[in-house]
Nucleic acid binder design. Structure first.
Length: 338
DNA sequence: GGCCCTCTTTAGGGCCTT
């Protein structure tokens, strides 16, 4: 059995469940603290960031985490009261817990995960129990077949301890020709302590499972995920003999942004990049763009604004979500028809 | 590559992701 050290534990803490968000939308975005009470501890674990190598401010992420439950989306970047300890990305993953993962255990987890998730949730609108996790990947390029993931970050919007996860990823023999984009170099990822994707996948599976509640479901949110992130994840999983669990539901904020623009009329700027959306929503982008956690931090704010304006309840999120197999099926269908 | 828009659908250009 291989032992890996990573930046979270599976300690379960009291959390504000998102299944109540539908009510929050009806009552107003700003009533979340009252609803969540002391359970909504939107705090982050002290995982790593790097002030020198394309980094972001952990302080700012803390601000978001604390404020997102109680203030207007456009006020989320104004507070500066939260404090976090910075540590160097020279250590790719932090060490809050020992993590032992067997491939056989992952197989058992995947057996437990059922198909036809969306119909089940939609049928049971009153009790839809959804965990929303915003994520982002950095890669060696745009080619889903030839390029590799070199960094991944996730943030569970319900908060609580260990609500963030981030790590560099060792891409093996693949070079990194686009360090000028994200600042991630071969030196940073090709050294002891940085997991390969093969080592990381079981950890990811268990981390996300640890964020799900019993009988609940997980929605993974990323920008342009339909065309980019999900395909990369899918390829990496298949490359090492894994499948993306069928109950991982994906949301593409690019599609939400286009929908939002339609809802605003013709005078709204048409740019839909993450940075353009931050500008549109007056969200201060903290840190360096194209580092995974910095992008996740920004996208979390953007997503909250979009979901608020578009009145997206958890059930609605499930309805508009897609699975990795949806994309595979569409690809096969397209291939057969051509 | 997928999606959207338009000077469109038997197409082409632009945006978005690193």
């Amino acid at each position: 059995m291989r032992t890996l050290t990573t930046c979270f534990s599976i300690l379960q803490v009291p959390r504000c469940r998102l299944h109540t968000l539908a009510n929050f939308w009806q009552e107003g975005f700003y009533s979340l603290p009252r609803k969540c009470g002391n359970l909504s501890r939107f705090r982050l674990l002290s995982s790593k960031s790097d002030a020198n190598k394309g980094s972001y401010s952990r302080r700012s992420i803390g601000n978001y985490s604390r404020l997102s439950i109680g203030k207007k989306p456009d006020e989320l970047t104004k507070d500066s009261s939260a404090t976090y300890t910075h540590e160097s990305w020279d250590e790719a993953v932090s060490t809050s817990a020992q993590w032992n993962v067997k491939r056989a255990e992952i197989s058992e987890i995947q057996k437990l995960q059922s198909c036809d998730i969306q119909p089940k949730i939609v049928e049971n609108k009153e009790t839809a129990n959804v965990t929303v996790i915003v994520f982002d990947i950095e890669t060696t390029g745009f080619s889903r077949d030839n390029d590799r993931i070199i960094e991944i970050a996730l943030q569970d919007l319900q908060g609580g301890e260990n609500s963030t996860f981030q790590t560099l990823v060792n891409p093996g023999a693949r070079s990194i020709p686009n360090s000028h984009v994200h600042g991630i170099t071969s030196h940073m990822v090709k050294r002891p302590g940085v997991p390969s994707m093969e080592e990381l996948i079981p950890i990811l599976l268990q981390y996300i499972r640890s964020r799900q509640t019993k009988g609940g479901y997980v929605v993974l949110v990323a920008h342009n995920s339909r065309s980019f992130d999900v395909h990369f994840l899918n390829n990496e999983f298949k490359r090492y003999g894994f499948d993306i669990p069928p109950d991982w539901l994906f949301i593409d904020t690019l599609a939400l942004a286009r929908e939002w623009i339609k809802s605003q009329g013709s005078e709204t700027p048409t740019k839909t990049s993450l940075q353009a959306l931050c500008t549109t929503f007056k969200i201060k982008f903290v840190g360096t763009a194209h580092r995974a956690m910095a992008d996740v931090n920004a996208l979390s704010l953007v997503f909250q604004r979009l979901s608020f304006d578009l009145k997206l309840s958890p059930v609605k999120l499930v309805e508009i979500s897609f699975t990795a197999s949806d994309l595979s099926d569409a690809k096969k269908k397209k291939k057969n028809s051509s």
